[in-house]
């Protein structure tokens, strides 16, 4: 069932506002497009590498935001060179995709060609306990950015780009 875009926009606006307050501490450069229901964030890894996150909020919060990485020059979304590489499968090289239940693109459902998980209940995304981890605190814009930034900050978790 489709969510009124104005409802999704209200959720997005409130959550992006909280993230904008936190942004200076993490060096996030926030570029929300509320009309298009899109948020672009430039994030920086511990070694200075930049990543350009794209969040899309269609039907939010009935379903999670679609979270991806974008090449700011070509505007190609989901390219391997735009993705961080991690120690585990959070930044999943199969896809590539941010493999977390807070990301619409992780679900293997129609329209999500890089999705990997048929085993997750999308209707319960904000309270998911997949992989024995409580994803609820990270089911907001700020929470998602917080989780991704924690990985980019740590040399043992962030291993460079998936492709050059």
């Amino acid at each position: 069932m489709a969510v009124d875009p104005n409802v999704s926009r209200a959720h997005m606006t409130a959550e992006v506002g909280a993230a904008i307050e936190a942004a200076p501490a993490f060096g996030w450069i926030m570029n929300p497009d509320y009309e298009a229901l899109k948020l672009r964030v430039r994030m920086t890894a511990h070694n200075g590498d930049h990543f350009h996150l794209l969040m899309t909020f269609n039907d939010y919060r009935e379903i999670p935001a679609a979270i991806d990485f974008e090449d700011p020059k070509t505007v190609i979304v989901g390219g391997r060179a735009s993705f961080p590489k991690g120690r585990d499968n959070f930044f999943n090289t199969t896809g590539p995709v941010i493999c977390a239940p807070i990301n619409l693109k992780a679900y293997k459902i129609p329209g999500q060609e890089r999705g990997l998980h048929q085993d997750w209940a999308i209707g319960d995304w904000a309270n998911s306990k997949a992989q024995d981890f409580n994803w609820h605190p990270y089911s907001t814009v700020l929470g998602a950015l917080w989780l991704i930034q924690a990985r980019l900050d740590r040399p043992q978790e962030y291993l460079g780009r998936m492709a050059v």
């Binding site: 999943n92 998980h117 992989q131 990270y138 917080w146 924690a150 740590r154 978790e157």
Partner: peptide, 10 residues
């Protein structure tokens, strides 16, 4: 301080 978690890679 910053309180963080990295979650479980899935």
């Amino acid at each position: 301080f910053v309180l963080t978690a990295i979650g479980n890679g899935v």
